[in-house]
Write a protein that binds this DNA or RNA. Structure first.
Lengths: 212, 212
DNA sequence: AAGGAACTCACATGAAGGTGCGATTGTCTA
DNA sequence: TAGACAATCGCACCTTCATGTGAGTTCCTT
């Protein structure tokens, strides 16, 4: 099996060289690109020279690793993008995940582990720390939540939708073809059922719990 | 450290007993509940007797493990729910993830590994197979829309968050330690940047586009 | 036929919000 | 050094909202 082509994007020259040597020594990889900044890598990212995987540091000078992700993805659609991090900032990693990286490795991990993880990614996996995984799952269940039943009637749901659209009572009334008074009454009932007492409370609850 | 209370829900009596014995032998766990069906576990799930974690087989007679998840979650809100699977059916696992399980273990894994994974879950992690993780990430990047940048400043974002919490200007002011006037001004700027002109419009936009 | 639930409309009042028109203070950066 | 921008605070005026209290209709179930 021929070695897989890798790119490294990492501002620390020593770490970059050490990692490159360590990975090449496994015989499974060859570093065809070595960049100090995301800008340099983007400039080199032309079709035809795409590596199998890109190892990308998040803490880069100039363009942030997270910012670079979507652009790299655009220019290297078939390369696996793997984020290297010191794992302090979970939020950064969450943003990286949303930007379409395939793997998240700790810079502190031994080379053998990093190599195994790269293989894993190239084989269709996404190795990730279990704590990160938990964060992902939590975000996930917020995206796809079990919608509770507050016993809203059809009319109430309709008006709640209008509220979520950002309309005021008057507008809702004319949209739905009712008097403001009626809309007012429905909103009271919605408030009671959702246990809130402002429009934005109701809107927040509706959107969070996917009631609409 | 006192052992963590576990429940096992698994129809195969032999496997259940073997697993229970193996886990208890580590000294870190004690099996306080052992059920053949999800229905039996649900009947026993009363407040006060909640275990630290529940190990739940997906392939159960009667009520499916996946169906049982949301109900268990409802009755045992503070227990970790861990799915045991033979890992053939990724789709089942995806549905389990959407139902709010915290961990996914292979039934074929050695007891030591299962024990380590339970510890991991109890410690706030979610161990998962890297192939599953990839599936999750793919689904994720499809669900999460690219967040637009409205150029909100740090302060504005902070106040927008408070708005989403349902607080009124006065409350926001005291929470953030500002005068109502300042909060007012920030809200105006938020409105302009988000192209809205009511709290609930801003809240709706923030939640929809995940600005907060 | 009785009862309940959903839906409709109305008035009034105090609280909260939206907006026009100011101002001063820092901290960057061209 | 001038200018841009974020952040802070202030007043005034009108709009919109929340809520208490009422009542009439239709439709479905018991």
């Amino acid at each position: 099996m021929t070695p897989a082509a890798l790119w490294l994007i990492e501002d620390n020259g020593l770490f970059r060289a050490t990692l490159a040597r360590g990975l090449e020594r496994t015989g499974r990889f060859v570093c065809t690109g070595s960049f100090r900044t995301a800008e340099a890598a983007l400039a080199a990212a032309v079709p035809g020279a795409a590596p199998a995987a890109v190892l990308l540091d998040v803490g880069l000078p100039g363009m942030d690793g997270i910012e670079a992700l979507p652009r790299l993805r655009e220019r290297l659609p078939s390369s696996a993008l793997i984020v290297l991090t010191v794992f302090e900032d979970e939020d950064k990693i969450m943003r990286a995940i949303c930007s379409g990286a395939q793997g998240y490795l700790l810079k502190t991990a031994p080379v053998s582990e990093i190599a195994a993880a790269i293989d894993d990614v190239l084989g269709g996996g996404s190795p990730m720390n279990s704590r990160i995984a938990r964060r992902v799952l939590e975000l996930f269940s917020r995206l796809v939540p079990p919608r509770k039943d507050y016993g809203l009637t059809a009319r109430e749901t309709e008006i709640l939708q209008q509220m979520v659209e950002g309309r005021i009572k008057k507008e809702i009334a004319s949209h739905v073809g009712l008097s403001v008074h009626t809309v007012n009454t429905h909103m009271r009932n919605i408030y009671e059922k959702l246990q809130v007492n402002t429009v934005n409370g109701a809107v927040a609850k509706a959107l969070r719990e996917r009631l609409v």
